[in-house]
């Protein structure tokens, strides 16, 4: 008799424990399907982003938080192709679509259709302007401005070289504006050259090598991340003194930084967005499906590596990867609670 009571009590206790473990969003999302629509997978950042998505969602599916969370990547990095992909997702009946968009505007039609079909759309990194979608934007302007602030805090003076990303992409414009704002604030700097490295090391190396022979001494290089190593190779090949190159958290960049630091006390700073922002977007989508009230526009913090945190960051980053941070459901619940 007593044992039965104990058993019942125990079961109740276990049940309530479970109830406690399922946080904030009361509604059950166990039957919900969330898809990731991704436009490009050809660089280390995107590879890490997809890996983080896979890791976190696999666990979420195993724990029955959601039913499914597959990721889809378009082959040609075309907005039209991604729009078609989103149309397919609507037909396949996903409850939420997390999207890293090829274009801020070109997908709006497809996204509006998804919203009309009652699908929650959360855009991150490459965000979309369609008002019905949620946006988890990165403060790219800040990423540009902080570079110049950092150079100023080092007391550097003189000529800057700017290595931009892919022309015509929102992110490139934002970081570029941030760098412009920074230079306005610190008139001791002059941008003597600007090239488009397309966020690709080999392209950055080529473009920098081409412009370098026409430039006076360069004190520092403002970049957009992912191409710092290529920039360094170009300076090395030209036999020029190494400027302070702002880096973008890639493993090859940090390895190179460590080598330079150990060899010649080279100092710089590195900042970017963690590819794990895909997992942040995933949990936001899950929370919305669970009934949480979420603002349409959110800003994701930047992940920064300094001279002091270099060794630790390098240790925790796998070769070929980017300094990463995967978000847990709790992180996102806390983040959303703070916004209220």
């Amino acid at each position: 008799m007593k044992t039965i009571v104990q058993k019942v009590l125990g079961a109740v206790a276990v049940g309530s424990l479970l109830a406690v473990q399922v946080p904030a969003s009361a509604a059950d999302t166990a039957s919900k399907k969330i898809a990731l629509s991704n436009n490009f997978a050809g660089n280390s950042w995107r590879q890490a982003m997809l890996k983080s998505w896979e890791k976190v969602t696999k666990e979420a599916v195993a724990q029955k938080v959601v039913a499914q969370a597959p990721s889809f990547t378009t082959a040609e990095n075309q907005a039209t192709e991604q729009a078609a992909q989103i149309q397919n997702m609507i037909l396949q009946g996903y409850d939420a679509i997390v999207v890293d968009a090829a274009s801020p505007t070109a997908l709006n039609g497809a996204i509006k259709k998804a919203c009309d079909a009652g699908i929650v759309v959360v855009s991150f990194d490459g965000v979309v302007t369609e008002p019905c979608a949620y946006r988890i934007a990165v403060d790219f302007k800040q990423l540009g401005e902080m570079q110049i602030d950092y150079f100023a805090s080092r007391g550097l003076k003189g000529n800057l070289l700017e290595v931009r990303g892919l022309a015509g992409v929102f992110v490139d414009d934002e970081i570029h504006q941030g760098i412009g704002d920074g230079v306005k604030k610190h008139p001791e700097y002059k941008i003597v050259g600007s090239v488009h490295g397309n966020w690709t090391q080999t392209v950055a190396q080529k473009e920098v090598a081409a412009i370098l022979s026409t430039l006076p001494t360069v004190t520092a290089v403002a970049t957009q991340g992912g191409d710092g190593y290529g920039v360094a190779q170009a300076f090395k090949a030209a036999g020029r003194p190494l400027p302070v190159i702002f880096l973008g958290n890639r493993h090859d960049e940090l390895t190179w930084w460590k080598e330079q630091r150990d060899a010649s006390k080279y100092e710089t700073m590195s900042g970017s967005i963690a590819p794990g922002s895909s997992t942040f977007a995933f949990w936001v989508a899950q929370q919305i499906l669970g009934g949480a009230k979420v603002p349409k526009d959110m800003k994701l913090p930047l992940t920064v590596v300094t001279q002091n945190t270099l060794d630790e960051a390098l240790k925790n980053t796998e070769p070929g990867g980017v300094v990463n941070m995967e978000y847990s459901q709790k992180d996102v619940v806390d983040f959303l609670a703070k916004l209220k």
């Binding site: 660089n43 280390s44 397309n198 090391q201 080999t202 190396q205 190779q233």
Partner: peptide, 16 residues
């Protein structure tokens, strides 16, 4: 040769 020149291989090294 590009991998040797750019300090390592990358997926996008032939893009252009």
């Amino acid at each position: 040769l590009i991998s040797g020149f750019s300090g390592g291989n990358s997926l996008d090294q032939g893009q252009e």
